[in-house]
C-alpha cells in the first residue's frame, strides 16, 4: 500500500505537469494549492538534513520538491503558460484560513516540542487541507476536464492507500503516528465527494467530471 500510494502521488504530479504542457494552459488549476504543497514538502523534509532513511526516501522527497517547484514555475513564470493562470479565480485566502490554524494546531499537537517536530506536524495538518484552494476553483468552474480529474483522483487515492497501510500496521501491532492518521483521514474525506462524481462520470464514459 505504501509503495502504491507513493507511486500514485508521483503519478498525480506528473499528470498535472503533462496536463499543463499538453494543453498549453493552466485553466482551472490552483497555483495556491501547489504553493501549499511546496510549503508542506519543505517543512516535512527538513529531515533530509538530519538523517538518512533510504535511497528510496531521499529520492522521492527530492522528486516531490523538484516536480512541485516545476509546476509553480510553469504557472507563475513560464511565458507560455502564465497568462492562462486564473489569478482572480484562485482567490482562496490561505494565510488566514489554512496556514494560521495549522500552525496553531501543530503547536498543540506534536510528538515533541522541538522545531523539527512542530514543522513536521504543521506539514501533516497543512497537507490535509492544502487541496482546498483547488477544490474551491473546481467548485466555481462546475466541471473538471479529463486530465485534471485524473490528477485529483490519483492525488486523493494516494492518501487513501496510506490509510490502508496504517490499518495494516495497526493489525501487525506496529506503531503508527496518530497525527499522520488523523491528517490522512481528514485529507481523504475532503476528496470523498469528488471520488463519487469521478467514478460516476467514468462509468458513464464522460470525458469530464460535472460537479454539482
Amino acid at each position: 500500500f505504501r509503495i502504491a500510494g507513493d507511486m500514485l502521488h508521483v503519478a498525480s504530479l506528473l499528470i498535472l505537469a503533462f496536463r499543463i504542457r499538453n494543453s498549453k494552459n493552466c485553466v482551472g488549476i490552483s497555483c495556491k494549492t501547489q504553493e501549499l504543497y511546496m510549503i508542506v514538502f519543505a517543512t516535512r523534509y527538513l529531515d533530509l538534513f538530519l538523517y538518512f532513511v533510504s535511497l528510496y526516501n531521499t529520492f522521492m522527497k527530492v522528486a516531490y520538491l523538484i516536480i512541485t517547484g516545476y509546476l509553480i514555475y510553469l504557472m507563475r513564470f513560464a511565458k507560455l503558460y502564465r497568462q492562462t493562470y486564473d489569478v482572480k479565480g484562485d482567490s482562496f485566502q490561505y494565510w488566514k484560513w489554512l496556514l494560521g490554524p495549522c500552525f496553531v494546531l501543530s503547536m498543540i499537537f506534536n510528538v515533541e516540542f522541538t522545531f523539527v517536530e512542530i514543522m513536521w506536524s504543521f506539514s501533516i495538518f497543512l497537507e490535509a487541507v492544502a487541496f482546498v484552494p483547488q477544490l474551491e476553483m473546481m467548485r466555481k468552474m462546475g466541471r473538471v476536464e479529463n486530465l485534471t480529474s485524473h490528477y485529483v483522483f490519483t492525488l486523493g487515492g494516494y492518501r487513501l492507500l496510506y490509510i490502508f497501510s496504517w490499518v495494516a500496521k495497526i493489525m501487525d501491532n506496529e506503531p503508527i503516528s496518530w497525527i499522520s492518521l488523523s491528517g490522512g483521514v481528514v485529507q481523504t474525506i475532503l476528496y470523498a465527494d469528488f471520488f463519487y462524481y469521478y467514478i460516476l462520470a467514468k462509468l458513464k464514459g464522460d470525458k469530464s467530471v460535472a460537479l454539482p
Binding site: D47, L50, Y51, K61, Y64, V111, T114, V116, E117, S177
Partner: peptide, 10 residues
C-alpha cells in the same frame, strides 16, 4: 531543536 524521532514515511 532537533527531534529524536526518525520518520520513514513520505
Amino acid at each position: 531543536w532537533i527531534s529524536s524521532y526518525i520518520k520513514d514515511e513520505l
